[in-house]
Amino acid sequence: MEGYLGIDVGSVTTKLVLINREAEVLWSTYRKTQGQPIRVLQGALSDLYNDLSPRVLGVGATGSGRGLVDHLIGADVVKNEITAHAVAAIRHYPKVQSVIEIGGQDSKLIIIRDGVVVDFSMNTVCAAGTGSFLEHQALRLGLRIEELGSIALNANAPVRIAGRCTVFAESDMIHKQQMGHNLEDIVAGLCEALVRNYLSNLARGKELREPILFQGGVAANRGIRAAFERELGKEIIVPRHHNIMGAIGAALLALETTPPESRFRGFSLARHRLVSTSFYCDDCPNTCGVIEVSDGESVIARWGDNCGKWSSALGS
């Protein structure tokens, strides 16, 4: 068995896929990053090895932790999530014109025409319209995140909730609860607030033409999808692999480059005891935070310094 490995280390979840030369998904995993990307990566690699023991022909990394993957595992392609998501979407739906992607901490809108990205937008600092926001609210209502969608679909009259800021949304939801609105209407209101927030932040001035794909972890929520369809008056397609599209895109990019020899460091890495530490370099006023990963006594990777003094001191 051989294939191309795509790794998407996001803020909340980590995704790995293995695809063959025909771009079919042979194996995939979707797990929580839980603030420990190194350990989660090791676990996923070890599972892949136990399941298939594949020969890895190339590695593509994406997600906010793509640099980490590159330093730790060795990647042939390191790409931003927007390109990765677009590549996967176009491969699976060549006619796609818009991609809505909502992940754990960020959301994106990608506009595609004739198979080429022509415009995109991405939310900035605030996580108000994203998965973390939903998860936090689910927790507060004592629900599992998976339940939110189906509960929302049972609403009769969704309440209006301020979705611009999580702090306001939360007080607004509490207020509506105390007034006596039922759970379904509140949850549906939450979904609508998120969609309104997304559309006013990201879709402002952009034309969402069909087919519209909805990717990312939040696409599993049927309530959000329904709210998008209501708000836009258009059909929203949720791809089968919606939650691992970023990783698929990264694997496709690795396939596209077909490296003669992959930089992949091998599965044995999963068995090592890797420890990461960090320090601030005081040699200049930039005070870069330097991250260091060591395997036993030896430092295997170091990054984060602007000038390259620490990362290059490592040699090979």
């Binding site: 790409k79 931003n80 999530e81 927007i82 390109t83 960020d106 990205v117």
Partner: peptide
């Protein structure tokens, strides 16, 4: 965040 900024710049250049 630097990462967010880099993501957008890289995606723009790729585009």
């Amino acid at each position: 965040s630097d990462v967010g900024l880099q993501t957008r710049v890289e995606a723009f250049i790729d585009m």
